[in-house]
Nucleic acid binder design. Structure first.
Lengths: 211, 211
DNA sequence: TCAAAAATCATGCATTTGCGGTATTGTCGG
DNA sequence: CCGACAATACCGCAAATGCATGATTTTTGA
């Protein structure tokens, strides 16, 4: 006999918390083991008897759901966290992922999708609402503009910029590429001109595609 | 009457190409408009009459599927690209996303999942095979070690490091924070000691979680 | 083949930065 | 109340860096 997926719910609004609990508990193969109104309550009670999956609201009174995940993740390393929220703002999505969440679902998702997502999350996937997934994929895209900027660099210049991005000094780059430090300086000067920057950090930021 | 989703397939292996084409064409609401054996053939014929979705194999003879996407993406900005491959190696996944793909599906996925994914991709989602999605989500996680390192910094030090990460010089940071440049230098010196680094780029790399 | 582009190296100078020591002030917890 | 720590600030040195100018050799593409 296969055991059910154990679930906990952190959600301040009574009505939503109740209906989520009923949905999870009523479905076959799921068990709602606990519900909490606040991040603090979850932090108090979850460690010790960790569950498989936690549905975490973000907009909680007191500590928010993201900070809660950050703290719980280290205390319950085997628990998977699903952010469960109304909004799909860029910053919260990425903050949640950084904090250790592996799923981000909008509350407007239909109930059967939610159960499907819990299963997928428990099976090692990272279910995301479609608009969220698109945001995440999009965050990797290298803009045509950025690509174009880097394309004006010669292969040698890119090679040098790559070393700079690892924190090398002029001299270290020179040693690694078997050329004189003055040559490296000249290349770096050329890179700066092409990228319209005036320091290593700025150049590296452009190289690695961060504004 | 709603129109079908138009699809093109780029895949060198005859058998797979055929069965994908039949799968897509046979399903309701999909139309396989073209198939290509190589990236070069796709680049020759796709621009001009772009399709909604392209299923792209990665391991092609000659130009690989990722470079093909990079080129096609600018020529067909409204086309969505789904990488469709046997392997789930880290580097190819991220390279594909950077190149502009919005979906990454393993070939071992069942047929109905594939059709579902095409629909989702066309509707603005970014369907990923579960192991891929987990990789991507995982790439955002900030390791406990990294988090720990940054936690030894004081708020003021983080504030200064944040400015450095934007490419500011000592003096610029000083002006923005209304303190003397020597103070900033002292802070930076302390930051270096705590993070065990010896230059701005290294410090910024740690701060932004770059390896 | 010939001009343009890239890669190499040098010299010089002013500024920035890495590193060391020192000191004052304010805050906070034990 | 006191010690620890954070934030502020200064001086000084040596090295790294940014910027300018100039030049030679390879590579390369038209």
């Amino acid at each position: 006999m296969k055991t059910s997926i154990t679930v906990a719910i952190v959600e301040d609004k009574e009505a939503i918390r109740q209906s989520l609990a009923i949905l999870v508990d009523g479905a076959d193969g799921f068990m709602c083991q606990a519900t909490f109104e606040t991040a603090e309550a979850a932090l108090d009670h979850l460690p010790g008897h960790c569950v498989d999956v936690v549905l975490m609201d973000i907009d909680l009174p007191g500590m928010n759901g993201i900070d809660c995940v950050r703290l719980l993740k280290t205390l319950c390393p085997n628990t998977q966290f699903m952010m469960c929220t109304m909004y799909d703002e860029d910053e919260t999505v990425f903050e949640a992922l950084k904090a250790g969440a592996n799923s981000y679902i909008l509350k407007r998702s239909p109930p059967h999708k939610l159960l499907e997502a819990i299963t997928e999350l428990h099976d090692g996937g990272s279910p995301m609402s479609s608009t969220i997934a698109r945001k995440i994929a999009g965050s990797f895209h290298i803009s045509a503009a950025a690509l174009n900027e880097l394309s004006v660099l010669t292969p040698r210049e890119r090679e040098i910029l790559d070393r700079l991005s690892k924190g090398y000094s002029h001299k270290e780059v020179a040693n690694e590429l078997f050329v004189s430090p003055t040559t490296v300086r000249k290349h770096i000067f050329n890179i700066y001109e092409k990228l319209q920057v005036h320091s290593k950090v700025e150049a590296v930021n452009k190289y690695l595609g961060r504004k």
